[in-house]
Simulated assay, not measured.
Amino acid sequence: MRRTRDPKRPVQASAPHTSWAVELRAVQRRYGKGRATVHALRGIDLALPHGSFTAVMGPSGSGKSTFLQCAAGLDRPSDGTVRLGGTDITTMNENKLTELRRARLGFVFQAFNLLPSLTVEQNVLLPMRLAGRRPDRHRAAEVLGQVGLGDKGHRRPSELSGGQQQRVAVARALVTRPDVIFADEPTGALDTTTATEILGLMRTAVDGLGATVVMVTHDPAAAAWADRVLFLADGSLADQLDHASAQTIAARMTDLTTRHRRTAGAVA
């Protein structure tokens, strides 16, 4: 049975948490000025616990990408507060914010973003180097083993399949034991079988390693791997589903998209 969220109540787990993995309070993001102003986010309130897997969905133009960029410190909100692991990142200067992203966050993108001139092991160790830490080859071997690539450390990305390259990206995201892993359409360039393998890896990272994953996706089958699915519409949190099937998620997305088109048509 679908559960509909009270839009005035922040999204959070039932149990109290003194420190959330991801916390957004009254977050707004506007672009432009005057009549040309675009309200990409309209007062987002949510709190996500450590060790959780959250998927974010919504119609085109709903604010998914802006949400991820603001939550991950890649963009600054116009108003409101963002905290990661209890740290307020909203007013951090760019140098401090860069340090935090390198040391405490992991990223997985649709485009694998591996450096072709580096080996698999060197790509995995890159976040450590960028954070000014001594590269830990034992840790690299550990995470490569966890994603099933323990024997590929000396290969180049061009020698791997697309699915294997995304596995390297997941290993790279895990290597620093980050507070949060942000994933932006991580399975968008993969076939169904390989996508399932990657989603299984992220699910295992949450369940077995205590990682926190926040994933933007358009695919209900991918979102069904998450503990919770948040739905954005017109820059606001419209609904949520917990432990839902792909069919239930797809039905909710169809409903939201239909309403979004009707609203857009009425405004036009």
Rank of each mutant, 00 (worst) to 15 (best):
D191W: 11
V168I: 14
V82F: 01
V168N: 11
G132Q: 12
A173T: 10
R156Y: 15
D79E: 15
L199K: 00
G200A: 10
G86Q: 00
L125K: 07
R83V: 04
L105C: 13
V108R: 11
I89H: 06
E197P: 00
P186C: 08
D191Q: 08
T91I: 02
V175H: 04
R172Q: 10
N95V: 14
D184L: 03
A173C: 08
T196N: 09
R104T: 10
K152P: 02
A141E: 10
V124W: 05
D184N: 04
S78E: 02
R133Q: 15
G163A: 08
A140Y: 08
D191N: 08
E121G: 11
S78V: 04
F182P: 06
A173R: 07
F109G: 10
G148D: 11
H138Q: 13
P116Q: 13
R133I: 06
G86F: 02
L149D: 01
R83H: 07
I89W: 03
Q164Y: 01
F109I: 12
P127Q: 06
V175M: 06
T192W: 00
G148W: 03
R177E: 15
V82E: 01
T193M: 07
N113L: 03
T176N: 15
T192L: 04
L115K: 02
L130D: 05
L118F: 14
R102H: 14
R167F: 14
R83Q: 13
A183Y: 12
G106E: 08
G145A: 12
A111S: 14
D179R: 03
N113F: 05
V108N: 12
L174R: 08
